[in-house]
């Protein structure tokens, strides 16, 4: 499914290593995905996998988590899937602090349909539907933190050991965890913006990223901040609902 040079396989690899390290019973893992390049990862994984409709993966996962709270649920989405068509579900999953692990494969573009602008296409950069430059873009970390997510972290496909760890930490957070995995699309975003091949794009991530912890001490203007942006416990939605309703009698 994925083009040669695509970074999505690297993110999927991180997810699998994190699952391996966490040593979770695989029958208690569900993968829910939306529509787009990254969401096709579900079909490659030998778990209980649910490939849903465009933008709605978090809403499907909300219903599933409510009736199966024992499941560890990963919700795989692309940047357009999670932040454009699925933006409403994202902010409300975040507000509820439901125990889902959102893994957003951010390649800054709509890849499957051939390179249209997403809310994560950096402002001014080109896309087939933004030939004169893209609109102002979102910062997923800021959206996640502002809407109530209890864990928000980012890494790129250059920082795979970090990405593994962030996914693991996200799973350990009892609540809504957002891991933004910056991947790259050499044939879509890369080609339109003259970013070079896959190796060049990986190197770009290497040279333009900075650990978020260092942001207070050095100039990080224009750099990608990687690491844990936010981690603060709060009551989890399904546990709260169960607590509030368990005494209810006919």
């Amino acid at each position: 499914m994925w083009c040669s040079g695509c970074g999505n396989g690297l993110v999927t690899g991180s997810l699998l290593r994190a699952i391996e390290n966490l040593d979770i019973d695989t029958s208690k893992i569900a993968i829910v995905s939306g529509i787009g390049c990254s969401s096709r990862a579900a079909g490659y994984l030998n778990f209980q996998t649910l490939h849903t409709t465009h933008g709605r993966a978090l809403a499907f996962a909300t219903g599933l988590k409510m009736v199966r709270p024992e499941l560890t649920i990963f919700v795989i989405m692309g940047d357009g899937d999670a932040m454009a068509i699925g933006g409403n579900h994202f902010i409300h999953a975040s507000r509820r602090n439901i125990d889902l692990n959102a893994i957003i494969f951010n390649n800054n573009i709509y890849g499957m349909t051939g390179g249209q602008a997403s809310p994560l296409t950096p402002q001014g950069e080109k896309a087939t539907t933004a030939p004169y430059g893209a609109e102002r873009n979102f910062d997923i970390m800021k959206v996640a933190v502002a809407t109530g997510a209890t864990f928000a972290a980012r890494a790129t496909t250059y920082h795979l050991p970090l990405l593994d760890k962030l996914i693991e930490k996200g799973v350990k957070n009892k609540g809504f965890s957002v891991v933004e995995a910056l991947t790259y699309c050499p044939v879509g975003y890369g080609k339109l913006n003259k970013k070079g091949d896959a190796t060049a794009m990986l190197n770009w991530y290497k040279e333009n990223s900075i650990p978020v912890e260092k942001c207070t001490t050095v100039d990080h203007e224009g750099k990608i901040t990687v690491g844990i942006h936010h981690h603060q416990a709060a009551p989890e939605f399904v546990e709260e609902y169960t607590r509030r309703t368990q005494g209810v009698k006919r």
Partner: peptide, 26 residues
């Protein structure tokens, strides 16, 4: 909740249909 069931008011109509399907899969 009287019979151990669950209710959620979703953020929109689309999400509520999605949650209904997700719950059935569970």
């Amino acid at each position: 909740p009287e019979t151990g069931g669950k209710f959620i008011q979703m953020e929109d109509e689309i999400g509520s249909m999605a949650a209904v399907i997700g719950a059935s899969i569970g």
